[in-house]
Amino acid sequence: MNIRLNRDLVSGGVFVAAGAAFAVTASGYDIGSASEMGTGYFPLCIGILLAVLGVFVIAQALRSDIGAESVNLRLRAVLLILASLLAFYVLLPILGLPLSTFITFVIAAKADPETPLTQIVAAGAGLAIIAYLLFVVALGLPIQAFPALLS
């Protein structure tokens, strides 16, 4: 998906928002004084600094003649990779390592639309077996190996 955006302008906005969020949260903590700093003192300073820097970046972006550029957001890859990570998060405690590995692999691999499904399934199954042998059998990681229902 292609969108048009002014990178510097948006980066500046991100800095302002993040700096402000950290600073505002920090102001709720114990600030203390310069000689005896509380929990919030340093993050408050850095947060303000970041927000100010962000304003500076925005100002620079507005003055510069580089406007909006076309940017390709790799939506398919973003969504599928995130989905594969979340799948691992949800499935590992339920299905155990080899099955979660397989499912995560398959979802992630679909980020490339041209890979044939048979290839994905074969490679995913191979990786699931390797993961089981390496992490559970050889390294003995305390990680659930099989579906919760079975064990």
Binding site: I81, S84, L85, F88, L92, L97, T101, T104, F105, V106, A108, A109, A111, D112, I120, A123, G124, L127, A131, F135, L141, I143
Partner: peptide
């Protein structure tokens, strides 16, 4: 790349 994702998770 999907293998990288899995290894990162583990």
């Amino acid at each position: 790349f999907p293998a990288i994702v899995v290894v990162a998770c583990i």
